[in-house]
């Protein structure tokens, strides 16, 4: 691994490094600027206020549930996309991945017309006495909507690059499809699944636009950390910066986790 890396490095022209450094600076400088704005003397007080703790707790809870939902629906979706071939599959994939490129606020509007009180599904649910609008369920739905493509995309890539040789062998030895999936496919792509889960969790944690449009904003119920930051920005910029830093730290931890699981995924190939 290290020898190949060294061999490649010789072939990179110098100006590439200059541009790469510029890009790295562009990404990190705003973070440095934000950290410079943190009011450290009140930092602990700001991030432990009742509303901050409620927002962080809600964000972690809803993102965890959204990640579980992404696994429940995303793993079968990735398997179908990676292992089957049918007409219109390309179109289906594009549609499934759409939330990835849609502005979240558009997703929020779409969800509103689906699960809102007068929405396609929501109006029927309302008759049954189930109301999704302004509930924590709405937050989880918004987060799952935007995070699902991340899991499907990472896992589909992992399944494709893992190949199907082992599965074919197991099948010829008489293993049933369920057994092959459980004993061969899923263990093989586990690193890809984990990094997909981490990415989904991170995306759910950062969800803002769809939640704002669709779920509303009430402390402890629907006001997640990004919404709390958005609100505090008006009234108490110090609190907004402090909470932003908390979100950055969580994001750094999550990205670090995702990167750690990547070399393993390379080993599985």
């Amino acid at each position: 691994m290290s020898t190949t890396t060294r061999a490649i490095r010789h072939e990179i022209p110098r100006w590439v490094f200059v541009l790469a450094a510029g890009g790295a600076l562009f990404v990190t400088l705003p973070l440095v600027a934000m950290i410079a704005q943190v009011n450290w003397s009140q930092f602990v007080q700001l991030i432990t206020s009742e509303s901050s703790v409620a927002a962080l707790g809600l964000s972690l809870r809803t993102s965890a549930i959204a990640t579980v939902l992404c696994v429940v629906f995303g793993v079968p979706m990735a398997l179908v996309l990676a292992r089957t071939d049918f007409p219109g599959q390309q179109i289906l994939r594009a549609l499934v991945l759409l939330p990835l490129v849609l502005p979240p606020v558009v997703g929020g509007i779409a969800l509103l017309y689906t699960f809102g009180r007068q929405g396609l599904v929501g109006s029927s649910l309302e008759v049954l006495g189930v109301s999704i609008a302004f509930s924590t369920t709405a937050v989880v739905i918004a987060q799952t909507f935007v995070a699902l493509p991340f899991l499907v995309l990472s896992l589909e890539g992992a399944i494709r690059s893992a190949g199907s040789r082992y599965e074919a062998v197991a099948a010829t030895l008489g293993a049933r499809p369920g057994t092959v999936l459980r004993r061969i496919t899923l263990p093989l792509v586990l690193p890809g699944l984990i990094s997909g889960m981490v990415l989904s969790f991170a995306r759910a944690l950062g969800e803002f636009g769809a939640t704002l449009t669709f779920a509303g904003s009430l402390q402890g119920i629907t006001r997640t950390l990004p919404l709390e930051i958005y609100l505090q920005r008006e009234a108490d910029p110090d609190a907004a910066v402090a909470l932003s830093l908390v979100l950055v730290v969580v994001a750094v931890l999550v990205v670090g986790l995702a990167h750690r699981s990547r070399p393993q995924s390379g080993g599985a190939q």
């Binding site: 609008a133 302004f134 704002l212 449009t213 509303g216 904003s217 009430l218 402390q219 629907t222 006001r223 919404l227 958005y230 609100l231 008006e234």
Partner: peptide
């Protein structure tokens, strides 16, 4: 309130 919005535009929406 079931929701406390950050702007009057959001409330109106």
């Amino acid at each position: 309130a079931v929701s406390e919005e950050a702007s009057v535009t959001d409330t109106l929406g």
